[in-house]
């Protein structure tokens, strides 16, 4: 009872949808519609799963009088106040999210939105700092990632093409210096030739590269997005979806049962 019924429910619901895709006629079409309707109702209840453990966690903190307990009091009282306010507005205006509702007008607009928006805007600072710290040209692949990121970052903003020539210039001069230093430290003649050659090529390339980027950077960014990036993303997502399908089949057939634990 505790295992068989859930497995049967999973099998029937999942299998029905697959059958309905290939045979959309009666009775599968309307059965699918019916099941979807039930799913809409039942899955709403998953929204509040997790809220209980959140509240319980903070309740325990308060009871044990932990150091952080005052914050837990704030959390639980906000929860209660907001819920009460929402219900009050819901009864008064038909829905707490009606345009005239005080809940929407004051709580949502002036408290919830600024909190959520600011919380996520912190990421702007973190990503700048992380880019500086972690983005190192450690090998060919890392360098490719850097170049592609640079093209997109500068190619997708106005006037990025004005700045790009300086960046490519500095990068190539840097490459030349590194190559010369590397060449000096090598013993074999052919190695010296390769590295000095690379240095010469970098210096010669500065002006053509700068010129190319100045006039073509937005188009280059377009090309990166629409051609190699697109192909790779397509391959990745086909792979991901194939994996998801395999997983879903295992679930429907009852091979994968971790969700029953």
């Amino acid at each position: 009872m505790k295992k068989e019924v859930p497995l049967a429910i999973t099998f029937i619901s999942g299998f029905l949808l697959i059958v309905a895709l290939f045979i959309p006629h009666e009775p599968f079409g309307s059965l699918q519609e019916r099941f979807n309707d039930w799913y809409i109702i039942v899955s709403g209840f998953t929204l509040i799963l997790g809220v209980d453990s959140l509240i319980l966690y903070h309740w325990r903190k308060i009871k044990r009088k932990e150091k952080e307990a005052p914050y837990s009091i704030i959390l639980i009282s906000t929860f209660v106040i907001v819920l009460a306010w929402g219900i009050y507005s819901g009864v008064k205006y038909g829905n707490p999210f009606a345009p005239a509702s005080s809940f929407l007008r004051y709580f949502y607009t002036y408290m919830f939105v600024p909190l959520q928006a600011t919380m996520f805007s912190l990421l702007a600072f973190f990503i700048a700092s992380a880019a500086y710290r972690a983005f190192r040209a450690r090998g060919l692949n890392a360098t490719l990632l850097l170049i592609s990121a640079g093209i997109v970052m500068l190619g997708r903003v106005p006037k990025g093409e004005e700045a790009a020539p300086y960046f490519i210039g500095i990068t190539l001069i840097l490459l030349a210096i590194v190559s010369v230093l590397e060449g000096v430290s090598r013993v074999e003649v052919y190695e010296k030739i390769i590295f000095f050659g690379l240095a010469v090529v970098s210096i010669i390339a500065i002006f053509p590269a700068a010129w190319f980027l100045k006039f073509n950077l937005p188009r280059l960014a377009d090309w990166v997005m629409n051609v190699p990036q697109l192909g790779a993303k397509r391959g990745l997502f086909i792979g991901i979806w194939l994996g998801a399908i395999a997983m879903a089949i295992r679930i429907i057939l009852g091979i994968e049962r971790t969700y029953l634990k």
């Binding site: 029937i12 619901s13 999942g14 697959i18 039942v42 979806w241 879903a248």
Partner: peptide, 23 residues
């Protein structure tokens, strides 16, 4: 678990059909 089994089965079925036909 009965309810969870239903939502999981539906999600799996929807996932398969969507990914196959739509992607």
């Amino acid at each position: 678990r009965w309810a969870i089994a239903f939502t999981v089965g539906m999600a799996a079925g929807l996932g398969i059909t969507g990914a196959l036909q739509g992607y």
